[in-house]
């Protein structure tokens, strides 16, 4: 495992920890899109079906279980926890996320590495992950005051994606037969979606003002 991949996994892990910290200690999910969290829960459930069929490493298995468990528990907290659910910006979080799922499924049926159940689900999870951040970005744009933890959460997620792109470049040049077109294209699309957010985040950081996205 190279340094970019490890750093990518760690920023992903930190993003989840930041979100759990906000939910557990502040008992708030203000500014967090339940739609995006639901999509992530579906993404990890459909991608990690290979937990039952393929063993890669202990690291791989543990990380998969962490991402599965945390994404499902975050959705549960936002929907059912008696305190946390009250802070959810339901009226602002109106992105019709289920509309994203059908095109991703159709694309996965058409473009996959092999036409089997596991491979189609794997491709579906990659296409869905590429667009899963959209409801969160729309919610951020509507929120007047983005709190620090929410800003850091999205920043860490974006960093995780960017580090994975570096990891692919590194692996392409150092490993033989390392080619994953589906992962690369959907991963690059996903990273580009963060570009706008990155720009405004660093502007606000540089000028030392509160993060606000233009409407």
């Amino acid at each position: 495992m190279n340094i970019f991949r490890l750093a990518g996994d760690m920023t992903h892990l930190f993003s989840v920890l930041v979100l759990l910290l906000k939910i557990h200690t502040i008992k708030s999910c203000a500014g967090i899109s339940l739609k995006t969290q639901e999509l992530y829960a579906i993404v990890f459930t459909t991608r990690y079906l290979d937990l039952f069929t393929t063993y890669i490493s202990l690291y791989n298995t543990i990380m998969k279980l962490i991402f599965l468990g945390s994404s499902i528990s975050i959705v549960w907290y936002m929907r059912h926890h008696k305190v946390v659910r009250r802070s959810y910006d339901k009226d602002q979080d109106t992105f019709r996320h289920y509309l994203l799922m059908l095109p991703c499924l159709l694309l996965a049926l058409l473009i996959n590495e092999k036409f089997t159940f596991l491979e189609v689900m794997w491709a579906f999870s990659l296409y869905l992950e590429a667009v899963a951040i959209l409801p969160q970005l729309v919610l951020l744009q509507r929120t007047r005051n983005i709190d620090n933890l929410t800003g850091q959460y999205v920043l860490l997620l974006g960093a995780y994606r960017a580090l994975y792109v570096l990891n692919w470049i590194y692996r392409y040049f150092t490993e033989e037969n390392y080619v994953h077109w589906i992962t690369w294209v959907s991963g690059i699309v996903q990273t580009l979606l963060y570009a706008d957010f990155f720009y405004y985040y660093f502007q606000s950081w540089k000028n030392n003002v509160k993060l606000q996205l233009p409407a």
């Binding site: 991949r5 996994d9 992903h12 290979d50 393929t54 890669i56 490493s57 791989n60 990380m63 998969k64 991402f67 590495e113 092999k114 491979e119 794997w122 994975y164 990891n167 037969n177 390392y178 080619v179 994953h180 992962t183």
Partner: peptide
């Protein structure tokens, strides 16, 4: 038979 590459990333 066509072999798909191993998926060792998360």
């Amino acid at each position: 038979c066509f072999q798909v590459p191993q998926k060792d990333e998360l």
